[in-house]
Amino acid sequence: MAGRIPLILLACGSFNPITYQHMRLFELARDHMHQTGLYQVVGGIVSPVGDEYAKQGLVSSQHRLAMARLALQSSDWVTVDDWESRQADWTETVVTMRYHHNCMVEKCWPSTKATPPEQTLASGPSQLKLLCGADFLETFKVPGLWADEHIEEVVGRFGLVCVSRGGLQPERTVHECDLLHKHKRNIFLVREWIRNEISATEVRRALRRGLSVKFLIPDNVIDYIREHNLYTPTSELKNKNIKLRPFTKQQPVLD
């Protein structure tokens, strides 16, 4: 790994709840980035979105953080960070990235398991890239969800590592979007060969119907959900008919 660029992968999302699929994203992305021969992945961060995001069925960030921490207890490189969820209002992904980039530069990370670059053979300044699934890439196309200058900064300044999931064609999304196409070289597309459609939505659906979710999410997360009676028909109604915060925050004039 001598002479490689140290890289930290940041995943933003609801993690409502965290599933094995989320955890697989990190493993697949790390393998892929190592294969480029250019990077050494030194750490991963899971950053659950704050409650103000107002997504339907979003349970309290306190629980989502606790579940993510339990799930990643056994990982020696991926950690959970609560900065984003502690903010008073929903924060744009780019703002979260700026915060973590700053921590990285100033080496003042509160909660990282990342190997300090001086202890690795990697050299040069560390980089931070956003780790996402192909469904996330699709959100760039949703009108009013992203500010153009934010996409530009996320993709141009930092970079994306995108893991493709069955059905979705990330290459096409990049091709069809001028902004993404412009920063093509900063977008790493990782192909997942097995179809693994475990989604948090499906997990919540099974839970409120009383069906088993064992082997889709870690046992200690299942115990936590049961203990706190987290996902029920009632919890799924939370934020129903409420506009997602990004829509109201970025387009106040339209309202």
């Binding site: 097995i194 179809r195 499906e202």
Partner: peptide
């Protein structure tokens, strides 16, 4: 939920 983890893979 398609979960096509084969032992071969």
């Amino acid at each position: 939920v398609t979960n096509d983890i084969s032992a071969t893979h």
